[in-house]
Amino acid sequence: MSVKTQASDGYHLRETERTRIWELATRAAGLQGAETVDLANLLLDVPAELRRTLVDFSGGTSLQGVALVRGLPVGDVPATPLEHGGRRLGPHGTTGLLTLVADLLGTLIGYEDEKSGALIHEVHPVPGEEQRIENSGAVAFDFHTENVHHPLRPDFLGLLCLRQDHEAVAATRVASIRRAYPLLTPRQRELLRTPVFSSAYPTSFSRNIAGPRPASGPHPVLFGEEPDLFMRFDSHTTTAVDPEARAALRALSEALEEVCQEIVLAPGDLVVVDNHIAAHGRSAFSPRFDGRDRWLRRCCSIRAIPRWTERMMPRPRVLPALARISGVL
């Protein structure tokens, strides 16, 4: 049974920390195109306890695979957009805030194939796309690790809440393989470590691809040894041909459900997920498209980018298109 994380959980910023981080975030937002090294002084000035929380979490030793920060400032929030990939906040303070968070964890990145390389993604419902299993939908989004198909998957995912849904029921759902692993049988664990699985590209990467969505693989779903267990899994797109392997995938989904945490984010709440330890998802909600719908902002962070990849990047922080690096990693 999933456990709902209460408002008292996580690290809460004090008022002095809120004032300081917003000042730094506003400055970072004005440095368009800045790389991590250019933000060094700002990163060093992040309030010590917040910096320590994020840096410690980036070490990858978490059992839960999730960190929660409450009480972050979000500034003035306009009406929730109605179009996919439409109005972005640009140099808004939350852009700088997420940049600083991502750079404390590793390096803020985007993907050339996804949302035209945008570094900060808007997560809100879009009319006509409510049933899509992606950021623009409102239906339940089952467990997945971000960009499961990609050889350079994010190490961390950050979700900052700007506005709750009207009923305040939409939950970010997070489930750790390190907690789910004991619920699997030895045979299921063995199968999930075998490279017989494939994962289709998510719809955010394949909107402009004609025909069936391509897939990556074969790959294992589980790797590493206890206590350093890791996972590469998307309940919507990871498949196997062998019936026993498919049954192992179902068992994994059930185990993740058993250990799931449900976090109802309020404005100013930030959830950070270790993308190799925990899968995440979303519960369903009912959008009204009145400018007051749920709105999160998302960032991805990676600990290290291969040097040859850096030389192929179309612009700073944006990883090259899969067609250019497919088969290299």
Rank of each mutant, 00 (worst) to 15 (best):
L43C: 07
E15P: 04
P195V: 07
W308I: 14
R294N: 06
A251Y: 01
L39W: 02
L82H: 12
E257A: 13
A255S: 08
V46F: 04
T80H: 02
A180H: 06
R317S: 14
G71D: 03
A102W: 01
P195K: 12
G75Q: 05
F143I: 02
E134R: 14
R173Y: 01
E114W: 04
T194G: 00
L39K: 01
A25F: 06
R232G: 04
R179D: 13
R250A: 15
D103L: 05
H121V: 06
P81L: 03
S286E: 15
H144A: 07
V169W: 02
P314L: 12
P220F: 11
L183W: 01
P81H: 04
N135R: 12
V148I: 07
H236E: 14
I305Y: 06
R232N: 11
T94E: 05
E122I: 00
T194P: 00
L13F: 04
T203Q: 10
H166S: 13
Y201R: 09
L104A: 01
F230I: 00
R187E: 15
S198G: 10
R213E: 06
G65M: 10
G10V: 00
A48R: 11
D242A: 15
D242Q: 14
I263F: 03
T239W: 10
P91C: 12
T26I: 02
V328W: 11
E23Y: 11
A240Q: 09
I277L: 14
L108M: 09
A34K: 03
A67Y: 00
R232A: 02
T107M: 04
P186Y: 07
P214Q: 08
V318I: 12
H124G: 03
A284T: 12
D38Y: 05
P47F: 05
S326P: 00
M312D: 01
G268P: 09
L256Q: 11
I109N: 03
E190R: 11
L105V: 04
A251T: 01
L72C: 03
R250T: 15
A323F: 01
L329M: 15
R27H: 12
S62P: 11
T194S: 14
P320D: 09
W22E: 14
D9P: 00
R189S: 07
L31Y: 02
F205V: 06
I120C: 04
E258Y: 05
F143P: 02
I277V: 15
D9G: 07
W308A: 14
V66K: 00
E146R: 13
S286W: 02
F197C: 08
L162H: 01
R189M: 11
Q131F: 09
T94M: 04
H150A: 06
V123I: 15
G71H: 02
G128E: 06
G33R: 10
I302W: 00
W22C: 04
T80N: 02
A279S: 14
R189E: 14
P81E: 05
D45H: 08
E262F: 03
P186Q: 01
S204Y: 13
P182L: 06
F223V: 06
G33A: 08
D155V: 10
A240V: 09
V241I: 15
P218E: 10
P243S: 07
N208I: 03
A304C: 07
S8E: 15
D76G: 08
R132M: 10
A79Y: 01
S176P: 08
